[in-house]
């Protein structure tokens, strides 16, 4: 039902964790829909130098979180924000249609983390 890549990401995610002194933190989803994704970023010179996640959710949600982190790490913030749910899904080797929203959640989590980072910059 899930692709090899999704299963690999789910059973051995590379970006799990929290960043204690994160420059931005974003949390999306809720218990009612069954997925909560929290993303932590470190930023230097507009580049995402480190990124980690904590996710409550199904296999697809965990795998999509991990893939999102991999795609975003090392990218300039503006470029990272251009990562689409479609790209995440494609790199995961496709997801069942009912799980597509997990990839969307990944992009939203990063967006929120960047918003948090930018608001801290202004302050």
């Amino acid at each position: 039902m899930y692709s090899k890549e999704t299963i690999k990401r789910f059973s051995d995610p590379q970006f799990v964790g929290e960043i204690e002194d994160a420059d931005g933190v974003g949390e999306v989803g809720n218990m009612k829909c069954g997925d909560v994704m929290k993303m932590f970023i470190k930023v230097k010179d507009d580049v995402i130098t480190d990124i980690k996640f904590k996710t409550y959710g199904c296999m697809a949600a965990i795998a999509a979180s991990d893939m999102m982190c991999e795609l975003a790490k090392g990218k300039k913030i503006d470029d990272a924000l251009k990562i689409t749910a479609k790209e995440i899904t494609k790199d995961l080797g496709d997801l069942p249609p009912v799980k597509f929203h997990c990839s969307i959640l990944g992009t939203h989590a990063l967006k929120k983390a960047v918003e948090d980072y930018k608001s801290k910059q202004k302050a």
Binding site: G34, Y56, G57, M59
Partner: peptide
């Protein structure tokens, strides 16, 4: 608590 059923059964399945 704190974890989702499908992830649990998915990992058990593996």
């Amino acid at each position: 608590k704190a974890i989702e059923g499908e992830a649990i059964t998915g990992m058990l399945d593996l």
